[in-house]
């Protein structure tokens, strides 16, 4: 039986880990390779780099960063942010990423998912979906949650999988950074709609929220960031609570 996964996300820019402060300044919080290794040692099941670089110069440092990380990290590494083409995906994989998440570019050109899955395999293609509640459904947004689309999140998740995505990274825009818990209704709706793993994202404020994403949201994996980086909890503490809740998770050897 597959374990539920705890995925740690690091925002990177210009080859460093950064943290947004009230959506204004960005603060440098450390070396990505060091942080990645620390989270692996603490028991993280997977690591994600979300590249928030604004310029091409900054983005070029991403591949070098992925290469340095892959040489020292022995858990799966996913990369997302600004991936536009099949060549971008190929570059990320050659640099050492195991998976690549595609967001705005998939909405603009859904065939990109198919092209990547055919060339590199579905296991490395992650459809990243940013969704915001809109009445009794959820609307898909692109461009870092700034641009609304006409797509319904559940229907779009289904289409992404039909087109070749091997996983869905599902972020609630409403909950992102709010630390009030994952959007469980959204997570459940998408988990029930697709046959590939769903990674719940956005809203983790405590270990109990992560447990809820699994038990009530039906997620296969949960993404955490700020609460770990800020020291509010640890990978070990989250996993201890998951274990108490009867969830099947990976223990440290």
């Amino acid at each position: 039986m597959l374990t539920r996964r705890l995925v740690v996300c690091l925002d990177v820019k210009g080859g460093r880990v950064v943290k947004g402060v009230q959506f204004e300044g960005l603060r440098d919080v450390g070396d990505p390779v060091e942080l990645a290794r620390r989270y692996e040692a603490e028991g993280a099941d997977e690591l994600t780099f979300l590249d928030i670089s604004a310029s091409a110069e900054e983005r070029d440092t991403l591949w070098e960063l992925v290469r340095r990380t892959a040489e020292q990290l022995f858990i799966p590494l996913a990369v997302g942010g600004g991936v536009r083409t099949v060549d971008d995906v190929g570059r990320a994989l050659r640099a050492g990423a195991d998976k690549v998440s595609i967001n705005s570019a998939a909405v603009a050109n859904p065939a990109l998912l198919t092209a990547c899955a055919e060339r590199f395999g579905a296991q490395c293609v992650v459809a990243s979906i940013d969704a915001k509640r809109d009445g009794d459904r959820w609307r898909v947004y692109t461009h870092g949650g700034r641009r609304p689309t006409d797509l319904d999140a559940v229907a779009w998740a289904r289409e992404c999988v039909a087109r070749g995505a091997g996983e869905v990274l599902l972020t609630s825009i409403d909950r992102d950074g709010a630390r009030t818990g994952y959007d469980l209704a959204l997570t459940r709706a998408v988990s029930e709609a697709v046959d590939v793993p769903v990674i719940a994202s956005g809203g983790a404020g405590s270990a109990a929220h992560v447990r809820d994403a699994f038990q009530e949201g039906g997620a296969d994996a949960a993404l955490v960031a700020g609460i770990l980086h800020d020291g509010l909890t640890t990978v070990g503490a989250i996993k201890a609570l998951l274990r108490e809740g009867g969830l099947h998770i990976r223990s440290l050897a």
Binding site: M1, L2, T3, R5, D45, G121, A122, Q123, G166, E167, D195, V196, P197, D220, A221, R250
Partner: peptide, 9 residues
Amino acid sequence: KRVPEIGWN
């Protein structure tokens, strides 16, 4: 039902 198998087992 769930293919590919992705994760820890």
